[in-house]
Design a protein around this nucleic acid. Structure first.
Length: 423
RNA sequence: GGAGAGCUGGCCGAGUGGUCGAAGGCACUUCCCUGCUAAGGAAGCAUACGGGCUUAAAUCUGUAUCGAGGGUUCGAAUCCCUCGCUCUCCGCCA
């Protein structure tokens, strides 16, 4: 959520910065709402002040045993007007709030301008794609004989669900273990186990609601709803909701390995084959809660933390700076890590690391006590470190052998009873 | 699933219709005194959102907030209703 003060003070500036990311803010509507809000709020507060003051006098007079009927008459007509004004004010504030909740974050100045994926900027390329002396198979074909079973996944649950058996299932688990061990032991994150079902308030905090409800799975619970987390960014970041943390507590660095559930309503037709795009996938997530002055620096570090996983797995990848038009709703700046997939002969997203600055913190009321003892909004960052399913895809494709076996990356062998080859 | 208790400021805790944004304590900040591994004294110390002034901040001023929402009332932390959460006991249970 943007700071409403910023919209009041520099509406034109905000409109033009949002335009860069392809969002058109209804500034006329905002101005009209603000104008009425101001009028009604001032009037309401004046009436409230009058009522409070008169009521206080009644109290004083009564305690002295004086007759209060004259003062009572004075305040008699106040109620109806006040009630009407209060109701209207509350409506206006709700409308303003809803308007703001649906406005995306402002892009950081360093974000390259652009409209789509095509305008993203490659920052660096690491590793050299392997040269194969045989026809490469895609991960679905490599994985099928080793235990990667889409048909059974579909039988149990439908399209975009996968069953893994045997060595593939173990490789999948090894990847997750390796990732979370690296994040905790090498990069200083605290491992967390979080709920997979969360309430609506939590999702409003990180920005999935109210705008993106269609992307989420939900379950009826009592008279309300619980949602399956689309990423543990949601739970990890919400740990600081409505909190004022001490300055010394920053930065807070959290990680979790959880399943992620995405309805992906808008994406049918893309990546229908294989396990690139699933309704359920595992991910190791990194979240940092930092001092506002430190968030730019933290973003670069987190990209490094994600890269270290790919480096250790010896997978070729590139780092891409997303352009203004391709960034997620809450991000001020985002880097994607794209891993090399030989069967597709291209780099595909395997991690996304974003600095949300105060956008989520404002929704969350997540603050710290600054140098002067005053509460101030924190900055929040999140990133995948990494998406486990897509990493499995990358390993299967990049480590495949001519005989259909798959070499186990060296760093994973301790997690697999020193198994060298899947066959 | 059954029965009961509770939810007040950073923390503890008083407050059952009226000068209550809320006593007292702890913690914290500043100052004073004393002097050495401590003690005493004074003051300050919630948040959000408006308005006025201002380049801005501070200050000033108003409103709201005692788990949430609604109601009664001139006036609600206090009374009524609904909901949420926490805890205790019983039952069930990986």
């Amino acid at each position: 959520m943007l700071d409403i003060q910023l919209l009041r003070n520099d509406l034109e500036g905000v409109v033009s910065r949002l335009q860069k990311r392809g969002f058109t803010l209804d500034s006329a509507k905002f101005t009209a709402l603000e104008l009425e809000r101001k009028t009604v709020q001032t009037r309401t507060q004046d009436l409230q002040a009058k009522r409070n003051n008169t009521s206080k006098q009644i109290g004083i007079a009564k305690s002295k045993g004086e007759d209060v009927s004259a003062i009572m008459a004075e305040v008699a007509g106040l109620g109806d007007q006040l009630k009407a004004d209060e109701a209207r004010l509350s409506e206006l504030q709700t409308e303003l709030q809803n308007l703001l909740l649906n406005v995306p974050n402002l892009p950081h100045e360093s974000v390259p301008p652009g409209e789509s994926e095509a305008d993203n900027v490659e920052v660096r390329k690491v590793g050299t794609p392997r040269v194969f002396d045989f026809a490469v198979k895609d991960h679905a074909d490599v994985g099928a004989p080793l235990g990667l079973d889409f048909d059974t996944g579909a039988k149990l649950s439908g399209a975009r669900f996968t069953l893994m058996r045997g060595q593939i299932a173990k490789l999948h688990r090894a990847l997750a273990q390796f990732m979370i061990d690296t994040q905790t032991e090498q990069h200083g994150y605290t491992e967390c186990y979080t709920p997979y079902l969360v309430n609506a308030e939590t999702l409003v905090g990180t920005g999935q609601l109210p705008k993106f409800e269609a992307d989420l799975f939900s379950l009826a619970h009592n008279d309300s709803k619980l949602y399956l987390i689309p990423t543990s960014e949601v739970t990890l970041t919400n740990t600081v909701r409505d909190e004022i943390v001490p300055l010394e507590a920053l930065p807070i660095k959290l990680t979790a390995h959880t399943p992620c559930f995405r309805s992906e309503a808008g994406s049918y037709g893309r990546d229908t084959k294989g396990m690139i795009r699933q309704h359920q996938f595992d991910k190791v997530e990194m979240v940092q809660i930092v001092h506002p002055e430190k968030s730019d620096e933290a973003l670069e570090q987190m990209v490094g933390h994600a890269e270290n996983i790919l480096k250790a797995l010896e997978l070729p990848y590139r780092v891409v700076a997303l352009c203004t038009g391709d960034m997620g709703f809450g991000a001020a700046k985002t880097y994607d890590l794209e891993v090399w997939l030989p069967a597709q002969n291209t780099y595909r997203e395997i991690s996304s690391v974003s600095n949300c600055e105060a956008f989520q913190a404002r929704r969350l009321q997540a603050r710290f006590r600054n140098e002067n003892g005053k509460p101030e909004l924190v900055h929040t960052l999140n990133g995948s470190g990494l998406a486990v399913g897509r990493t499995l895809v990358a390993v299967l494709e990049n480590y495949q052998n001519a005989d259909g076996s798959v070499t186990v990356p060296t760093v994973l062998r301790p997690y697999m009873n020193n198994l060298q080859v899947l066959s």
